[in-house]
């Protein structure tokens, strides 16, 4: 039932209904409410109601033909964050909004291979995740069959303590050693996994990883992670996700805890870092 807190003009007893009372009647009717008694007994008002109903369709057409909203002016692209004092971190300009075409183009090339201790490769296609087992893709896999770059996946077990530590580790995260064919890189966590429950186990499954990544990326622009590292942050189990940034010279590093899901990222740290030069 539609509520009408502005009802003081919507009811006029036995007199003919005015425009707003008829508009309210149509709104209520859309919710399945019965028409006011007056409309059922007054042919004139019923006729006018039908005229209004038809006119609303024409209004919808007029509104649809309004010119498109122009792009956001450059003045609004500037950062609202106060510029820090000299020597502090530089404030970057705001990330430009990706156009629909750009987002569509990116979606078409979304192919992500990921894995973990299970050496499972996870492939994202159009926002969905497919699982394929491929041990040789686990570490240092550069491209998949489609020629799209896959993320580097590591179980470094590193205990990152600061953003600076992550920045320093970036070259290694992005270019881990490639194992010899048929071999896998031994994980420092392998022994631990056998002895104790793995707190990041859920994030090693395709569904768990997919959900977590969805909480970190825009639905309209699911960027492919460049690197994943199952590690710890200040002693807490953590997954390090390295994503491309809007600015090519930067990378977005998300460090999430074991509770990362599609609804809650369990964020431990987010930092924008300089992309290592090759």
């Amino acid at each position: 039932m539609t509520e009408h807190p502005d009802d003081h003009v919507a009811s006029h007893g036995d007199s003919h209904l005015d425009l707003e009372a008829m508009a309210d009647a149509l709104a209520a009717a859309e919710d399945g409410a019965a028409l006011p008694e007056h409309l059922r007994s007054c042919a004139a008002c019923a006729t006018r109601l039908e005229a209004l109903r038809a006119a609303l369709g024409a209004v919808a057409s007029d509104l649809a033909e309004l010119p498109a909203v122009p792009p956001v002016p450059a003045s609004l692209q500037r950062s609202v964050v106060p510029t820090p004092s000299p020597g502090a971190t530089t404030v970057l300009p705001a990330r430009p909004v990706a156009s629909l075409d750009e987002a569509r183009a990116r979606r078409t090339r979304l192919v992500l291979a990921a894995g973990g201790l299970a050496a499972a490769a996870v492939v994202v296609v159009g926002g969905g995740l497919l699982l394929s087992h491929n041990a040789t893709d686990t570490h240092g896999a550069a491209t998949n069959a489609a020629g799209v770059e896959s993320p580097r996946v590591q179980d470094s077990g590193t205990d990152y303590r600061s953003p600076a530590a992550l920045q320093a580790a970036l070259p290694g995260l992005l270019s881990p050693p490639t194992p010899a064919p048929g071999k896998t890189v031994p994980s420092p966590l392998h022994g631990l996994v056998a002895a104790t429950p793995d707190p990041l186990a859920r994030l090693r499954t395709p569904a768990g990883l997919q959900g977590c990544l969805a909480s970190l990326t825009d639905p309209a622009d699911r960027s492919t992670p460049l690197a994943l590292d199952y590690a710890t942050y200040k002693g807490a189990p953590a997954l390090v996700v390295v994503l491309p940034s809007a600015k090519p010279s930067k990378l977005d590093i998300w460090v999430v805890g074991a509770g990362c899901t599609q609804l809650e990222s369990d964020l431990l740290l987010y930092v924008k870092a300089d992309r290592p030069t090759k």
Binding site: T2, P5, D6, D24, A27
Partner: peptide, 9 residues
């Protein structure tokens, strides 16, 4: 409901 009413009006 108020949003709907205001939109119709």
């Amino acid at each position: 409901g108020t949003v709907k009413s205001r939109c119709f009006r």
